[in-house]
Each structure stands twice: as structure tokens, then as C-alpha cells.
């Protein structure tokens, strides 16, 4: 249960980062949502064998992390955690795709290996961008931005409750599981029987607590709308932010900048 607890604490830490005072934090959440969206679309739109052209996209997370003063190591560790899952998804690429793309000496590099690495890089970039978006915006402000961008309130409020429910469920799971472990005396307890009962109780308990939390929210005037503390408007800074980054992403997507740099370097140093 330590892993669930740690994951929840990490999620809470990510949310706390959103309280920062950097220029990136101060931007209207809609601008950050739009730029992240363009970034993700640009990154995932490449072909499966594309590798070199993805590398320049690292500039976006690197610059935002630096400007927003986010803890780079913490984020890197969290992003790295998804690597095994992505590797599992692309596990069979090297097996089924034996197309020879090039050779490094005697070693044949097949399309399967390149597509696997490409998949990992794309996942790291997109998940990293999502983490950075939450770390500089906060989930409530993010949902509010989605709403202001035209997503129906029904969906954004559901999203917020779902996010809140993760914490309730994780807390209850930790407590129930700890109680079970302590009385299992290093054995398996009563096996599946006790485990299924535990899961059932967990559902009912979290349900009850979710109802209590909802009551507490209603008691404080909640009428189906979350308000972000930071009041912002889409001004010149936001316009420049969106225009600047989107132009960069489109340029990187349309032109092979890394190829050009490669040719330039090999031209100077043949």
C-alpha cells in the first residue's frame, strides 16, 4: 500500500506546485491548455519510424520547467515511471516488424526497434507536457479553462469529482489494506474471500465519504461550479505565448530542423 500512498502524495505535490508565482503560473490557463494541446498533436502526428525529428520538441518541457521553477528531477522520476507500461505496449514491435532500416556496423537496426523507441519518446514528451500543465495550472483551474474553451460543464465537473475521488479511494484503500495486513500475521489472510469483502466495503465506505464530502461542499455554497482562485484573462502575454509556441511546433513539424542541423554540422565538419 506504500506505493498507492506515495502516488497520492506525489499527485498532491503536483497540485501544490500550481500555487507558484512564476510568469508561467500567472498565464491564463486557457493559453497553457491550448499550447499543450498543439504540442501533443504535433508530437503524436509523426510517423512511427520518426525519431530524430522528435528530439527538438524537448525544448518545450525544458523551457517551461526552467521558467516555472518546477522540480525537474521529481518530474523526471514520475515520467520515468510510465516507461515500463509503454514498453509493454510496444513490446512486440521488434518481434513483428523486422524491416531493416539501417546498419550500425554489423548490427541490423529494424523498424520494430525504432518504432518502440519512438513510441517511448512520444509518450514521455506528451505525459511530461500533461504533468507540466497540471504543475503550472492546477486541476481546478484546468477544468475551468476547459469549460471556458467550450467543453460542457457537465464533463468538467465530472472530471473534478473523479479527480477528488482518487484521493478518497486511495486513502480508504490504504487504511483498509493496512488493517487487513496487520491481522493477517504475514499470511494471506483469508485469501480471495476476505479480499472480495474488503473491496466491497471499500466501495461502500468511499461512497459514504464521497457523499459526506459532497454535503460539506453543498454546505459551503457549491452549486456545480469550481472557482479558481487566480482570476485571469486572455491578454497580450497569453496571445504571444500561444502564438510563439504554436509557431515553433508547426515549424518543427513542417521542416526537418534536426536534419538541417545535422547536414550543416556534417557540412562544416565533413
Amino acid at each position: 500500500m506504500i506505493s498507492i500512498n506515495t502516488a497520492v502524495i506525489d499527485l498532491k505535490r503536483l497540485e501544490l506546485m500550481a500555487g507558484g508565482n512564476s510568469p508561467i503560473h500567472a498565464l491564463d490557463a486557457r493559453a497553457k491548455v491550448l499550447v499543450t494541446f498543439v504540442f501533443i498533436v504535433a508530437v503524436v502526428s509523426y510517423g512511427r519510424y520518426e525519431l530524430a525529428r522528435l528530439i527538438p520538441f524537448c525544448i518545450f518541457p525544458a523551457v517551461i520547467i526552467a521558467l516555472a521553477d518546477l522540480p525537474a528531477l521529481f518530474l523526471a522520476r514520475k515520467i520515468a515511471l510510465i516507461c515500463p507500461f509503454i514498453a509493454m505496449i510496444g513490446f512486440f514491435n521488434p518481434v513483428f516488424d523486422q524491416t531493416e532500416l539501417f546498419r550500425l556496423g554489423h548490427v541490423v537496426i529494424t523498424g520494430g526497434w525504432i518504432s518502440l523507441v519512438s513510441l517511448i519518446i512520444r509518450s514521455l514528451l506528451t505525459v511530461g507536457a500533461a504533468f507540466i500543465l497540471i504543475g503550472t495550472t492546477g486541476f481546478a483551474a484546468l477544468c475551468q479553462a476547459l469549460e471556458r474553451l467550450g467543453i460542457p460543464q457537465l464533463f468538467t465537473v465530472q472530471l473534478l469529482f473523479l479527480y477528488r475521488y482518487i484521493f478518497v479511494l486511495a486513502d480508504e484503500t490504504c487504511r483498509a489494506s493496512r488493517a487487513r495486513e496487520l491481522r493477517s500475521c504475514d499470511k494471506k489472510g483469508l485469501g480471495v474471500v476476505s479480499f472480495s469483502s474488503l473491496v466491497g466495503h471499500l466501495l461502500l465506505r468511499t461512497w459514504q465519504q464521497a457523499v459526506r464530502i459532497h454535503s460539506a461542499m453543498l454546505a459551503r455554497g457549491f452549486v456545480g461550479q469550481f472557482h479558481a482562485r487566480r482570476q485571469s484573462r486572455f491578454g497580450v502575454a497569453e496571445f504571444c505565448f500561444v502564438l510563439g509556441w504554436s509557431s515553433l511546433f508547426m515549424t518543427l513539424r513542417l521542416f526537418d530542423i534536426s536534419g538541417m542541423i545535422g547536414k550543416m554540422v556534417t557540412g562544416i565538419f565533413p
Binding site: 497540485e15 501544490l16 492546477g138 459526506r212 464530502i213 461542499m217 454546505a219 455554497g221 452549486v223 482562485r229
Partner: peptide
């Protein structure tokens, strides 16, 4: 609900925002 302020038995049911400030601001914002 604006007139009657209710403090629940378990404060964990009542506190759900990322920081204390955000939590106390939840009601006034609403």
C-alpha cells in the same frame, strides 16, 4: 446555507482543496 454555517464532525470531509487558503476561499468564491 449562506445563513447556517456547518462544521462537520470529521474535518477531513470538509477540507479538500490543495492548500488551506484555497479551502477557506472555496465558500467565499461560491
Amino acid at each position: 446555507r449562506r445563513t447556517v454555517g456547518m462544521v462537520f464532525q470529521n474535518p477531513d470531509d470538509q477540507l479538500f482543496m490543495p492548500t488551506v487558503f484555497d479551502d477557506v476561499a472555496f465558500g467565499p468564491l461560491n
